Computed example of a mutant assay.
Amino acid sequence: MRGVAVAAALLLAAAGVAQAGPDLGNWRVDAGSDGQVTASLHATNKLITGGGALGYSPVLTLACRSDGEPRWSEWLQLNDAVSASRKITMSVMVDGGSKFDESWAVGPRGKLLVREGDDGIKRLVSANRLLLSWRFGLLSGRGEADFDLAGLSEAVGRIAATCNADPP
Rank of each mutant, 00 (worst) to 15 (best):
R2Y: 00
V4H: 01
V4S: 05
V6I: 15
V6G: 00
V6W: 01
A8N: 03
A9P: 00
L12S: 11
L12A: 15
A13K: 01
A14G: 15
A15E: 02
G16I: 05
G16D: 01
G21N: 01
N26L: 09
N26H: 11
W27S: 05
R28T: 12
V29R: 01
D30N: 07
D30L: 05
G32M: 01
D34Y: 02
G35M: 06
G35K: 06
V37C: 06
A39I: 01
S40T: 12
A43I: 04
K46H: 13
K46C: 08
L47W: 03
G50C: 03
L54Y: 12
L54R: 13
L54P: 02
G55K: 08
G55M: 04
G55C: 08
S57L: 04
P58I: 03
P58L: 03
L60H: 02
L60V: 02
L60C: 06
L60S: 07
T61C: 00
A63H: 01
C64V: 10
C64G: 08
S66N: 12
G68S: 10
G68W: 02
E69S: 14
W72R: 11
S73H: 02
E74D: 05
W75G: 04
W75M: 08
L76I: 12
L76F: 01
Q77H: 10
Q77T: 12
Q77C: 00
N79H: 09
D80Y: 01
V82W: 03
S83E: 13
S85Y: 08
S85Q: 14
R86H: 13
K87G: 11
I88E: 09
T89R: 14
M90P: 07
S91Q: 15
M93A: 12
V94Y: 02
D95T: 13
S98E: 13
S98F: 02
D101Q: 14
E102H: 07
W104L: 07
V106Q: 09
G107I: 11
P108Q: 13
L113Q: 04
L113M: 10
R115K: 15
E116R: 14
D118M: 11
D119N: 14
K122Q: 15
L124F: 06
L124E: 07
A127D: 06
A127I: 10
N128D: 13
R129P: 04
L131D: 12
L131F: 01
L132R: 05
S133E: 13
W134Y: 10
R135S: 15
R135E: 15
R135F: 02
G137D: 10
G137S: 10
L138W: 08
L139H: 06
L139E: 10
L139K: 11
A145E: 07
F147G: 03
L149A: 07
L149V: 08
L149P: 02
G151A: 03
L152P: 03
L152M: 06
E154Q: 12
E154K: 06
A155Q: 02
A155F: 00
A155L: 03
G157T: 07
G157L: 01
G157V: 06
R158S: 06
I159P: 04
A160E: 08
A160P: 12
T162L: 04
C163Y: 04
C163N: 10
D166K: 15
D166V: 13
D166E: 15
D166Q: 15
P167E: 10
P168D: 11
